[in-house]
């Protein structure tokens, strides 16, 4: 029997100058892939699978834009904390 999990959500602003370009997108997808939860990320009404590089690149999140993460699953809280922290730290690019 599968557990029932609630949808958790968290928003974060993109702070690094170049935005979520190729390398940060890759970092984000890698980080999301380490969690068992289903994770989505949304920007301006476009919602994509955070574990898909094709999806995350499509967001084209620029500096100053807001990303909203939603997660469902056993490690949802932890996933949200890790991902928002990664974005907040500017993907450790600068």
């Amino acid at each position: 029997m599968s557990e029932v999990h609630q949808v958790k959500a968290a928003s974060v602003e993109v702070v690094n100058r170049a935005g979520v370009h190729a390398r940060p997108a890759a970092a984000l997808v890698k980080a999301a892939g380490r969690f068992r939860s289903e994770i989505h990320v949304e920007k301006d009404g476009l919602r994509v699978n955070a574990k898909s590089i094709m999806g995350v690149l499509m967001l084209a999140a620029e500096q100053g834009s807001t990303l909203r993460f939603t997660a469902v699953g056993p490690d949802a809280e932890e996933a949200l904390a890790t991902l928002t922290e990664l974005v907040r730290r500017g993907f450790e690019e600068e």
């Binding site: 190729a22 390398r23 890759a26 890698k30 898909s52 590089i53 094709m54 999806g55």
Partner: peptide, 19 residues
């Protein structure tokens, strides 16, 4: 190391269900 990571997106595309 930073330049090496320019190949990360392609590597992830190879794991992506979309592809």
């Amino acid at each position: 190391a930073l330049e090496g990571r320019i190949f990360d997106p392609q590597l992830l595309m190879l794991e992506d269900a979309e592809v």
